[in-house]
């Protein structure tokens, strides 16, 4: 009936513990050393070297990025100052041209006023000359008329 012979007494059985145990333990310890030199160390070296390489690259890239940001900020301030400078120059030029325009306008006004004054004076003198002549002619004419009238009488 007991075909299994589970707890095998002397020979065999599932729980038959013998020298297999220590030898297997020695085998596993040996395997640990073999796998360490064959697998864990070399693969670990390669993987850790790569990890170091990658992290170094990341650090380098971060440094470069911060440098780029610094340069960008620097450029931005320079751009800003250039812009204000340009604005200043433009406004200065505007003021200058305004001033020149005003000066030219004043000069032109003065000149126009002067020539206007001159013309007025000339007109006045001519008017007075014409008036004198006219009154002289009127005098002559009146004298003539008077003489004629006297002669007819």
């Amino acid at each position: 009936m007991l075909a299994f012979n589970f707890f095998g007494a002397t020979e065999g059985g599932l729980f038959d513990i013998n020298a297999t145990l220590p030898l297997m333990a020695i085998q596993v310890v040996a395997l640990t050393y073999i796998l360490n030199s064959l697998f864990f160390k070399p693969v670990g070296n390669v993987v850790e070297k790569r990890e170091k390489f990658v992290s170094n690259n990341i650090i380098e890239a971060k440094n470069k990025l911060s440098e780029v940001k610094k340069l960008e900020a620097d450029l931005l301030t320079r751009l800003q100052s250039a812009r204000t400078e340009a604005q200043r120059i433009v406004s200065e030029a505007e003021n200058e041209s305004d001033k020149l325009y005003k000066e030219a306008l004043e000069l032109a006004n003065n000149e126009a006023n002067a020539s206007k004054e001159k013309a007025r004076l000339e007109i006045e003198s001519q008017t007075s000359a014409a008036r004198d002549q006219l009154s002289k002619q009127a005098d002559d004419l009146s004298e003539l008329i008077v003489n004629r009238l006297i002669l007819e009488k």
Binding site: L14, L21, P22, M24
Partner: peptide, 10 residues
């Protein structure tokens, strides 16, 4: 059982 006990004792 020998193998597993060996591993467990290690």
């Amino acid at each position: 059982i020998n193998t597993t006990i060996a591993l467990a004792l290690l």
